[in-house]
Write a protein that binds this DNA or RNA. Structure first.
Lengths: 266, 266
DNA sequence: TTGGTTGGTTCATTATTCAAACCGCTTGTT
DNA sequence: AACAAGCGGTTTGAATAATGAACCAACCAA
């Protein structure tokens, strides 16, 4: 692992629930030497990717990240483009919806919205990278990804996040073919034990998968009728999201919403 | 310069006008070796800070930056807090207003808004880090910064961006004392030759300067009356911005808006 | 005092960087 | 067709910078 990766990985330890991290915490989190960690922190700070609280000396994410994200959004506004799609979809289905884009072997959250209609909500941490094999978004992506990519994922480490995470490559392969046929993935308790979620792929130019939309709800609220309604809305959302991003739906994708909706049992 | 800095600095070459950069371009821009540059690019890409266009193989800023900026905003929402202040101020004065925060020896843009009321607008590139000695924002910050910090800036490289940039430390020192007394900095053609801008400091907890607000307009529209009206609005904006950020105005700051407004000739 | 924190520094050892050559591919020119 | 020049990317061994165990200093509680 290179120096740059070591430094950048430290940024990933920040999350909504852990916004500030001190030197010793970083040493524990990374398992690396204190001197190295410190030098990396200083360098990140000098470049504005971190800033140090004057009092506590703890580090938090810095203003450079803000500046760069503004530049990316100004030239390639994925987030602001997906925002209305996600928000409308979330309001329509009445549950948490999030959009994410493929980054390496995981999904990077881009935007999420929860209409907050119910007493219990699904917790979503936008700092977490999502695994492909254990989330509805990930399965939706894998189902439409090129065969070599699918194989490299199924052949890699398939972490079991709960006892209901599917980690058998053969079973996953069958599951992905079913999702490919239906256009929507459905998972219950495979990543968060109490959550049921459904996902649809989002495509870029040339019909290649670039990300996913997903709706999640507490499994206690997940009746078959509700899930089918959400699935139909997601399918329509996939088309909208792909269109606003300038992508193309592959010809083989099951068309919404006038198309027959087959309930998918997963 | 460390490896991490070399890699992170490459991200700064992206801007609104240069959203995609290829390997050879980076080699020219950085002056570094092609093999090294390539390894850095690959490592940045693997961590999602860059993504490579499949067709052209050019690099652009990646989704990880988006994810991290969302985390920072969720826990320390400087941008979304300053947004309404900047927008209202811009609409009030009818000109481009931007907010920026101190990062090392420069200012990092956070948010900007242009009401677009006139035929000619000031161009603002949010990718550019602003120098302290040649911008109204920077002078506003320096005027209220601790003496050692002010001296380290005035003792460093003072680049002349135009023939009207003040680069003499002694002259700048006098200028800063005047700004400190008046609360507003005013510069004409010191950074962009055709632009006149005014800046006010924004303070954090404990009354330390953390950033600035600035309003800019084409010098051809800059009449004394207009500038004084904008200066008054900025002073009020500084108080609002400081308050919403949870900071404290220093006791010595000239109070708006009921206070006497002295026109500052700079 | 002792013991356990915290953030930060020093200096042999070790891994990374550099420069120049090369490869395969595309593009525009002769 | 042949050529040159551009592109992204890779390989090589000598120069250079990163690493990590030990060390400092400060703070807090017992």
């Amino acid at each position: 692992m290179g120096t740059i990766t070591k430094a950048l990985e430290m940024l990933n330890f920040f999350s909504d629930s852990r916004p500030q991290i001190g030197l010793s915490d970083f040493v524990r989190l990374t398992g690396r030497d204190k001197a190295t960690v410190h030098r990396h922190l200083v360098e990140l700070e000098q470049n504005g990717f971190l800033e140090q609280h004057p009092g506590t000396r703890a580090y938090r994410l810095g203003p450079a990240i803000l500046r760069l994200s503004a530049v990316r959004e100004a030239t390639y506004p994925v987030r602001s483009i997906l925002r209305p799609v996600v928000t409308e979809l979330a309001e329509e289905v009445g549950e948490l919806v999030h959009a994410s884009v493929l980054q390496g072997y995981r999904l990077s959250p881009v935007f999420h919205h929860d209409p907050m209609l119910h007493g219990t909500q699904v917790h979503f941490d936008q700092a977490e990278m999502l695994p492909l094999h254990a989330t509805s978004s990930g399965l939706a992506v894998l189902a439409y990804a090129p065969e070599p990519f699918r194989r490299s994922i199924l052949g890699g480490d398939l972490v079991a996040y709960t006892e209901r995470t599917v980690t058998d490559p053969a079973t996953l392969h069958v599951l992905l073919d079913e999702i490919h046929a239906g256009g929507v993935s459905r998972l219950s308790g495979a990543y968060d034990g109490e959550v049921t979620s459904q996902g649809v792929p989002v495509f870029g130019p040339g019909g290649s998968v670039t990300g996913a939309l997903s709706a999640a709800l507490p499994s206690v609220r997940a009746t078959p009728g509700t899930l089918d309604r959400i699935a139909a809305a997601l399918r329509a959302g996939a088309v909208r999201a792909t269109r606003v991003l300038g992508g193309e739906m592959p010809a083989r994708y099951p068309l919404p919403p006038q198309t027959t909706l087959e309930a998918r049992e997963v």
